[in-house]
Design a protein around this nucleic acid. Structure first.
Lengths: 153, 153
DNA sequence: AGGAAGTATGTGTATATGCAAGCAATAGTC
DNA sequence: GACTATTGCTTGCATATACACATACTTCCT
């Protein structure tokens, strides 16, 4: 056949991810709106809470985020008193990021709002399918995937 | 049990999406870099090519993107001569977005680069799993999902 | 015709994000 | 101990993104 049907649906995996992320972020952000945190900000605070007092670079890596981007993203959180950044006395190149009491309080405040959004997601997508999806998405951020993507696999 | 083990892995579907999108976008953007387009820009150009000469609002809807965001995103594409925006003579509120010859050429130029990235993705994730993932992600942008999320399902 | 409503965009502002270049501090080498 | 390489971060710049408000245009009603 000479003519090739151009599908209306994009086959691009990146496009599909970006569209879904825009939509889902908007839903979670709406749910979080009463507490004043955006989903990215909440994710950052949670990661800090889990990591203790990580240096900025480690935090960025855990968040799958560029270090410069993280530095920028921390600005509003510092300004609002949720995180405190200090110089590591052991290695003055490092910046140690820590939650403040206010940060922990805000995180606690956001918990119920986040849980409602999460329940909404799983109501729409199914709890089991959601877990599978997260697993798939976690693989996409793994070194194995990146290496295969770049042809080293 | 009184103590509750705090999992190191986030259960948040939004966080998982955002992390994966950051990583995958970075991979596609690197692949596209020689042609000068970012993945979002390429997606916009492709959607215009598919839609013909859509009004801005329709284009935004197809892209699952806020209208204001799309207006902003079109600025660099206009500046670089890839798209042309004109007033709809039938309804002067509408803005009709069209590809220029340069835009079509740039899209053609990007094709090989995109295909390489797409092959990389499917090498790492599997072609069948990629198709399933896209299907899942497409569902997340559907009205059915949003209604269920918001408890109208 | 004239004004009220409704619709489609544009704009301003704030956050989100990556990259490149510059700075600061440590580590290695001789 | 000084020069160099490396490492960790910050900053500047460009794009990405949403929301609220302002603007422009059309429709509708009377």
């Amino acid at each position: 056949m000479a003519t090739h049907h151009i599908s209306q649906k994009s086959l691009c995996n990146c496009t599909a991810l970006r569209k879904a992320t825009r939509r889902v972020s908007q839903l979670y952000d709406s749910a979080l709106e009463p507490c004043g945190l955006r989903s990215t900000q909440r994710t950052i605070l949670i990661q800090i809470a889990r990591s203790g007092t990580p240096p900025l670079g480690e935090l960025a890596e855990a968040l799958v985020m560029d270090r410069g981007a993280l530095t920028h993203n921390l600005k509003p959180l510092q300004r609002d008193g949720f995180v405190k950044i200090s110089v590591d006395p052991q290695d003055r190149r490092n910046r140690l990021v820590a939650l403040t009491a206010q940060g922990r309080a805000k995180l606690a405040e956001s918990e119920v709002l986040w849980a409602r959004a999460q329940r909404g997601f799983e109501a729409g997508f199914g709890a089991a399918k959601s877990a599978s999806l997260r697993k798939a998405l976690e693989f996409l951020v793994s070194d194995d995937f990146v290496n295969a993507f770049n042809g080293q696999g």
